[in-house]
Write a protein that binds this DNA or RNA. Structure first.
Ligand SMILES: [Zn+2]
Ligand SMILES: [Zn+2]
Ligand SMILES: [Zn+2]
Ligand SMILES: [Zn+2]
Lengths: 140, 140
DNA sequence: TTGGTAATGTTATATGATTACACAATTGCG
DNA sequence: CGCAATTGTGTAATCATATAACATTACCAA
């Protein structure tokens, strides 16, 4: 490997056209988007088929620029600087306004790992999605 | 039948025909099943449409007898006695054999609640799904 | 009996994701 | 450069998951 930074730090310039378009939609959205919503919004840019979106999403997730929310079947742009340095991320998802926030907590990672290890389970990837009310909606 | 007790403790006798059939499939399976897999297995018992499965599943989840695994879009019978007394449950899902185990840990519940509360988030429901290798598969 | 509630049956449709195949662009190397 | 390997793209078809809409039936209680 040469010394240019292709390892796990991807800036937008390195993205392909389709990846940039999908990333643009997610970045400018103020919440998670489904793959088909992204598709609809990119039809005017020439997108015609789901696969164009899913292929871009696969890469963006691989690059750590986008997260998939399992409980919503949707995708959200990463907004946590240095997100890729933390193994475990938790998401809060507001059931009223749809806002998603990322939480990172090394102790949580350790806790989950220990909890799993107690049963002999080797932890590879954690999905932690917390549903409830965000600060703004909770005050109502 | 004169003695009906529909509190929040549901035994199989209280289930309707369709609910019993769906519960039977999940109980006898050794892992999670998708709604459509359940449908296929119940066609010989007269099931014809997805809704028959989904409606039963909704109730069984409501009763706490079945859990939905968000990251698999599948359902699994609860095997943890007294599961309903614990607010937060984590699942381990083996990526090799598909086996699912339930973990309950009051500390984890507290930890998540505190983590969320630190950002003003009111936690209603937690989804914690841990992917990796179970003890048996990890030894390989 | 009569009316309300819960459960069921059926069809169609909405939503989410992948398979299969053809082709173009890019990269890496002799 | 010439060529092959890899990666990205386009398109159609299909599979998989979930719900909407509406009619009917079973059950329980006033
Ligand atoms: Zn992130
Ligand atoms: Zn909110
Ligand atoms: Zn349980
Ligand atoms: Zn296993």
């Amino acid at each position: 490997m040469s010394d240019h930074h292709h390892d796990h730090h991807h800036d937008t310039a390195a993205l392909t056209k389709n990846q940039s378009l999908v990333m643009g939609q997610l970045s400018s959205a103020n919440g998670p988007l489904s793959a088909y919503t992204i598709l609809d919004r990119l039809r005017e840019h020439g997108f015609r088929a789901p696969l164009q979106v899913y292929r871009a999403l696969d890469k963006l997730v691989e690059f750590g620029m986008v997260h998939r929310l399992e409980s919503l079947n949707a995708f959200v742009a990463c907004r946590q600087p240095g997100c890729d340095t933390h193994e475990t991320i938790a998401f809060t998802i507001c059931e009223t306004c749809g806002q998603v926030a990322e939480l990172s907590d090394p102790e949580l990672a350790d806790h989950l790992k220990a909890l799993a290890a107690a049963t002999g389970f080797v932890l590879k990837k954690s999905t932690v999605e917390l549903r409830g009310l965000c600060r703004a909606c909770g005050r109502a």
